[in-house]
């Protein structure tokens, strides 16, 4: 009798389990379909085209000083590009600032090439100036593909940047009260069907940090982290973060520092 009851209960549980399973399976199927699409995109990532353009720009003599960027110090010594992106942002003595790859390129354009970068900073996203900067960042990031993220927070200014980034991450405002953490502050949630990384965790930070710059298939555009962050703020209904400003570097520092030990997978590709 007891045994029979037990069997009945087990069957009942199995049925309930099955019903819940099918409901979940349908949702998973949609996500799986998106995953398969992402996988297919990886073969032939158009980001390669931008890497090639970025490399040309890096090596081409330009500006009033008619010099190339090849002697630019990205933190690992003048001219060393390989592995540099995986160690950025970092503190630079010459500027007495913590800089990411993109703001460091601006410094090199100024000092080595004699270019007035103001128009690069103010140029709209998608303008030829910003496309140049994105291509250069894509090239630099590609030279750190498969390299481990190793970002230092040892220098007081690096530590400060990390902490400011964390504070910025939680700063809510604007008509919608949005902060970065509104969307990226919980584990395992989505906007519509888009899964969102939980940035304060090493895994979440890495899934964001190590996959940008990325080619966006839907827009046909190459985005560096600066553009990625600017678009987050746009959707947050905030004003526009200034290219290379401390706000952007602080958030990058927070992400990069939190993802230490992860492997760079740049340039990435997004749907």
């Amino acid at each position: 009798m007891t045994r029979r009851f037990a069997v009945g209960l087990a069957t009942c549980l199995a049925v309930a389990g099955f019903a819940a399973g099918t409901a979940r399976a349908e949702g998973d199927k949609t996500i799986e379909g998106i995953e398969a699409y992402r996988e297919a995109l990886k073969d032939g990532n158009p980001a390669e085209l931008f890497e090639a353009q970025g490399e040309d720009l890096w090596k081409k003599k330009a500006g009033p000083k008619n010099a190339s960027l090849e002697t630019c110090d990205l933190g690992m010594g003048p001219g060393v590009v390989a592995g540099a992106y995986a160690h950025l942002p970092r503190y630079f003595k010459d500027t007495d600032k913590v800089q990411d790859a993109e703001s460091r390129v601006l410094t090199c354009m100024t000092t080595i090439q004699g270019i007035d970068v103001a128009k690069y900073v103010s140029a709209r996203w998608g303008s030829p100036e910003k496309d140049e900067l994105n291509a250069i960042a894509t090239f630099i990031s590609g030279m750190s593909k498969d390299v481990k993220v190793e970002v230092s927070t040892a220098h007081p200014k690096e530590r400060q940047m990390f902490e400011l980034g964390k504070r910025m991450f939680y700063y809510g405002g604007g008509p919608h009260d949005f902060s970065c953490s509104t969307c990226h502050g919980q584990e395992g949630v989505r906007i519509r069907l888009q899964e969102l990384p939980y940035i304060p965790s090493p895994k979440g930070a890495a899934s964001g940090w190590t996959s940008w710059p990325a080619y966006r298939v839907s827009a046909g555009q190459m985005w560096g982290m600066q553009w990625r962050l600017a678009d987050c703020f746009r959707q947050q209904r905030f004003p526009e973060p200034i290219y290379g400003s401390d706000v952007t570097i602080a958030l990058s520092m927070f992400m990069a520092g939190t993802s230490n030990g992860a492997t760079m997978n740049t340039p990435g590709i997004k749907r």
């Binding site: 073969d43 032939g44 158009p46 085209l49 080619y215 298939v217 046909g220």
Partner: peptide
């Protein structure tokens, strides 16, 4: 055909 086409 998409922008920046990939052909195999």
């Amino acid at each position: 055909i998409s922008k920046n086409p990939f052909l195999s």
